[in-house]
Design a binder for these strands. Structure first.
Lengths: 222, 222
DNA sequence: TTATTTTTTTGATATATATCAACAAATTTA
DNA sequence: TAAATTTGTTGATATATATCAAAAAAATAA
């Protein structure tokens, strides 16, 4: 069950920069785990001991306080979770929860930190990954603070189509409340806006199954 | 006017990890520039040729589109601007504008990239810096999307007191519109909330001069 | 299967926040 | 200095969005 990283076809491209010895070290310090729907992969404020690599399934990445919850991202295959705490935080500054069955590789954070301090090509790819995250966060913070709820919902549907599901037709493993927590709106408004978009002929909705009918006009709303 | 980085007492702690040769290389590929109030230091979407290190003065870091502007951060002494595009973007994904006279070191991005691919201790400090930025962005995105305008304004005043000015009493080099663009609210509401806080005895405001009178109760609003 | 719980949907209403308009104050320009 | 422009302030109003409540539908448990 515990594939050697050296021969793993699923691994992150980051790992292409590792030596045989380093891959061996990672292999020896990783676990493959199946998280079931609803299970917590990473808990905000818990001490950061691992980074996680998603092999299959979708997980929500979210930040919480006592009463509020904001979903930052739906992470899928090939996502690395936890690198944003490297060299900085001792605790995770976000949570990750499985939205369906999710297979992950759990890797010791010390092993990764150690490779970073020795392998300059690897740390360079980590810098790249972090900057991709920052880029997404910049888009997110601008979108959430400056755009109206229609525009935010349109943007979400387009990103589902382009990135998450890579298809104009998809089934989401999440509730209306989840959609509300991604777009930072009331769940009742999720229902109303989806209905509005359906009325305009932009999309077709059937429970959790979505179809993008007019991608261009939907994009224009963003 | 062009101090050698090897002997510069202002330099970022990141540069402590550089060799004599690397410091020499940086020195040869940097400019010291004085930006005057209102001048653009970094323009969003412009091709990324430099990173900037602030030696003195305050600059706003902001993201824009045709009609909206969101200020992410007030960057001061010792801030590095532009490292979030390393290894990833060819263009800046934010703007930076001087709010008062700002002295900066402008360093060739290629020189920095080159050091990153050779000096593992330096890239480790960059990873740390990036993760500090991500941490701030996570706080920002949660605050802007989940908290009301009173809470956002309280948080801003506390951060001015704790981080930006490191004093309970400070004079801000920015307009009410700037405050509105940091907290993502209408400028009229900035005026109203400041007045409300003054009425509650939390702060004292005189034009651009602020005094925090009841830090604890102000903090509780956040 | 029926019963129970959870999620989704709808309409009515409340509320937070933005916008508008007009004026005052401060700053800049002539 | 006065004139012009920008910035700050206030109150009235509009609007976007959230909340509440109740019913319908779907999922889960008995």
């Amino acid at each position: 069950m515990n594939t050697n990283c050296a021969v793993c076809s699923n691994r992150s491209s980051c790992f292409n920069t590792l030596s045989i010895n380093e891959l061996q070290k990672v292999s020896e310090n990783k676990n493959e785990i199946l998280f079931r729907k609803g299970e917590t992969i990473i808990k905000q404020d818990a001490s950061a001991k691992h980074i996680y690599f998603i092999k299959s399934g979708l997980a929500k990445v979210h930040v919480q306080d006592e009463s509020k919850n904001l979903i930052l991202e739906i992470a899928g295959k090939s996502s690395m979770l936890g690198i944003t705490v490297l060299n900085h935080n001792k605790r995770y500054n976000f949570s990750a929860t499985a939205m369906e069955n999710v297979e992950v590789c759990e890797i010791d954070i010390d092993v990764i930190s150690n490779i970073i301090t020795n392998n300059v090509a690897f740390s360079s790819t980590i810098i790249n990954e972090l900057n991709v995250s920052i880029d997404k966060l910049l888009t997110k913070v601008f979108c959430l603070s400056q755009k109206n709820i229609q525009s935010r919902m349109a943007e979400l549907l387009v990103s589902f189509s382009d990135q998450t599901f890579k298809s104009r037709s998809f089934t989401i493993p999440m509730s209306r409340t989840d959609l509300a927590e991604i777009t930072s709106m009331a769940k009742e408004n999720v229902v109303r806006i989806l209905k509005e978009f359906e009325g305009q002929g932009y999309i077709k909705v059937n429970g959790k199954h979505f179809e993008i009918l007019d991608y261009d006009r939907l994009s224009k709303l963003c």
